[in-house]
Amino acid sequence: MTAALTAPFPWSDVWGQDAAVQTLRQAASDPAALSHAWLITGPPGSGRSTLAYAFAAALIADHPDDENAMRQVLAGTHPDLTALRTDKIIITIAEARSLVERSYFAPSAGRYRVIVVEDADRMVERTSNVLLKALEEPPENTVWVLCAPSEADLLPTIRSRVRAVRLREPEVADVARLIALRTGIDEATAEQAARHAQRHIGMAQRLATDEGARRRRDETLRAVLGVRGVGTAVEVAGHIIQAATDDAKTLTAERDAAERASLLRTVGVAEGQAVPPALRSQLSALEDDQKKRATRSLRDGIDRVLTDLQSMYRDVIMLQFDRDDALINSELQADLAALAAAWPVERTLIALDAISDTRETLQRNVSPLLATESLLVTISSGRTP
């Protein structure tokens, strides 16, 4: 039985994390069990942010039946909630300093002031150091809630100042059931989406509801399977980067236009009217932020493709060891079985290592196209560069 079926509001959207919900519910209701800083860790899609905001809602509400306050928290509009969710590659020092300043404000309406930091792993060392004193000696009624994939993603000095809550990875069946319930999609499509997303709830929901995303994923995997040399490696790499770029533009274009229109409306500039010189710096700052968000969106898109490729070669390894009972890409089983028979295990491991190295490389300032081309040449040749 999942937590979503047993826990009351505001915990009802947290699926499959009964132990974590129980720990945080106890902390929200018993001051003796409440730490001043928490770290929620778990794999992508496990529900870190959902749990963080449910915890914040329970902390801020005056009592367990104060649904109005809790709904405000979940909507991100309560004055005692400060949340940072970055669309950029890193969390900046300026953003961290702003959080620290807010943490010293007394609660204005609720029991606690809660600071939620999503993607806390995106803080470099200098930025993390800004938080240290605030985490070590916060005001009595302030609670910090950080979210990250793992404790290892944060500095030891940060880890020593927080209480960790580790989420378990949900089962495919759990994610499929949730997606079917949320979207009304048929069970077979929901199961396939959950499996292809490797139990990442957000990605599973997108695959379940976006036929184009499902098609692009299938075409990409089949294209990589068809790479036979440098020529096709370069061609397929180009297609992968172009598809990721188009996807990133689709995800960000509408939001960018809405933000620009909102800014111009706020400063009194009518649509189509020239922007006064005094306001151009504000517009330029917005555009810089949007460019950084677009860069992250592109990198995230390429990383999703690499994650899919990892799942494919993981399936090949499974087949090479005569395991066909838990394939992620069972629709490609015949092709993967042929590859498993043709390749030695060592070559499949080279492919998996190359994908991991490429994912790390793309976190630095390298050309995504060149990195992807190099990866596909390595996979097709079975030799490391």
Rank of each mutant, 00 (worst) to 15 (best):
A257L: 07
A180M: 06
E271H: 00
E169V: 07
R347W: 11
S297P: 01
R215M: 07
A96D: 04
S12V: 05
Q363D: 11
I317G: 05
A109D: 12
S49V: 02
T86V: 11
S160R: 10
A57E: 04
L154R: 03
L362P: 06
E101D: 14
I241Q: 01
S108D: 10
A334Y: 01
D353P: 01
T127L: 10
S46A: 15
T82K: 03
Y53A: 09
A28S: 14
S381K: 03
V345T: 13
S262N: 04
T348A: 10
L131N: 12
L264E: 05
S12T: 15
V275A: 00
R215V: 13
E331H: 13
E287N: 12
G301A: 15
T142Q: 07
R217S: 10
H36I: 03
A37Q: 05
T142R: 11
E136S: 10
V172T: 15
G42E: 06
F321A: 09
E169C: 09
Q363V: 06
E360H: 08
I89Q: 14
V234D: 11
S108G: 15
A278P: 02
T358W: 05
L81M: 11
D335Q: 14
A27T: 02
V165R: 02
E254D: 09
P170M: 02
A75S: 15
A188F: 00
D308M: 01
S297R: 10
A7R: 04
T295M: 13
T2N: 12
P368F: 07
L327S: 04
R177C: 04
W38F: 08
T77F: 06
H200D: 12
A7M: 13
G76H: 14
A274H: 02
I115A: 06
D303W: 06
R280S: 04
D174H: 04
A134R: 03
T77D: 13
A176P: 00
N129D: 09
S374M: 10
T50H: 05
Q363L: 10
D324P: 03
M123Q: 08
G231V: 10
P107A: 12
V366R: 08
S330A: 14
A3W: 05
V227I: 13
Q290E: 11
I379N: 03
L74A: 09
S98E: 15
Q363G: 11
D246F: 02
R296L: 13
I115Y: 02
A96H: 00
G226I: 07
D300G: 03
Q22R: 14
E346C: 03
V234G: 04
A237L: 08
S284A: 14
V162D: 01
P10N: 12
E373R: 05
A20H: 10
Q290G: 03
A193D: 05
Q22G: 12
E331D: 15
Q205V: 09
E118Y: 00
R168V: 14
A204S: 04
V162Q: 05
L369A: 14
R102T: 11
